[in-house]
Design a protein around this nucleic acid. Structure first.
Lengths: 166, 166
DNA sequence: CAACAATACGTAAGTAGTTACGTAAAGGAT
DNA sequence: ATCCTTTACGTAACTACTTACGTATTGTTG
């Protein structure tokens, strides 16, 4: 039992981050072992472009729930490696459409079985002991949607107020 | 159903990060609302020093499963705010012992009820729908201890090999 | 006990994101 | 058609960490 474990729900954030780091490290190792130069942070963008075809920066950012500077950074890297190109949208010249190059498309093909293995093994690991990590995350998100943690805590500490103002 | 939700176990990392960000944001808001200048990242260090008394940098880093530069950064901030002091360990002059100042101790006292509320509400939120987030995290960590994700995936993709080499 | 290895700490630079801010293009109201 | 607002994108700076590396001590061993 580590100190963090003892802290229980007080260290939920640390635990989430630690698990995330661990999964990221192991994911990175998989591509390394397979000798494929691919970074795990590229995955959502790559997957999206493979599925939807050319997409604008903000469109991708909104879909993946990241900010647009993050997408631009990933796009620049992918572009450097010749996996992605971009062009101005003729209908709306503010928008820049990102698309996979033929090389990028070949890589998505090559990665299909790898991603399937990630999915299977992720499921295998995330389920166990009567708890499903993904379901647990979803139920926490749903609980927070009903009433944010902030309100729960402040209401508990200041029970006089009927409702806390935003 | 968002795109990330559709990705399921493939986007586990994104989901963990997103939830972590959300909890962090809401935690920060609580201290803001209460008018207490306290950053959530200070918590583990603060809690540890309150409980164990003066501790060396590496000792804290190991206990909290962070690296020593992270501890130093937090310590510098706490020191600037007059909540923490440090002195060289006389037994081992390489070590620097961090300790709460009287002001720091008063703050821990003030924060006790807040932390209790965090614990209660964290538990309330993390449990639900038959899944406990903390238990789910622990069972995933246990599964990874038994066999890392890397090995599971590589074994699945290269079933010829009896065991993958490190 | 001298020499070498190991440990503690400090600092710099990297990482994967964010917020903040500026510019260009598009859309809407009059 | 003009003015104002909104949207898309680019870039800079911040955040909360990490790894890498250098120096000061301490421990170990021949």
């Amino acid at each position: 039992m580590s100190y963090l474990t003892d802290l229980g729900y007080l260290a939920l954030g640390s635990r989430l981050r630690r698990l995330n780091d661990r999964l990221a490290r192991e994911g990175t190792q998989v591509y390394d072992t397979l000798g494929i130069h691919f970074e795990i942070r590229w995955f959502p963008v790559f997957h999206l472009l493979g599925q939807r075809g050319p997409s604008a920066v903000m469109e991708i950012a909104d879909t993946l729930e990241l900010t647009h500077p993050a997408i631009i950074e990933i796009a620049d890297k992918l572009s450097d490696r010749g996996l992605l190109t971009s062009r101005k949208d003729d209908k709306d010249r503010r928008r820049r459409l990102l698309a996979l190059t033929p090389k990028g498309k070949r890589l998505t093909e090559q990665l299909q079985p790898v991603w399937r293995a990630f999915e299977r093994c992720g499921r295998e690991v995330a389920r166990g002991g009567g708890n499903d990590l993904l379901e647990a995350i979803e139920s926490v998100e749903a609980a927070l949607d009903r009433l944010p943690l902030h309100d729960r805590i402040v209401d508990r500490l200041q029970p006089k107020r009927v409702r806390t103002q935003k």
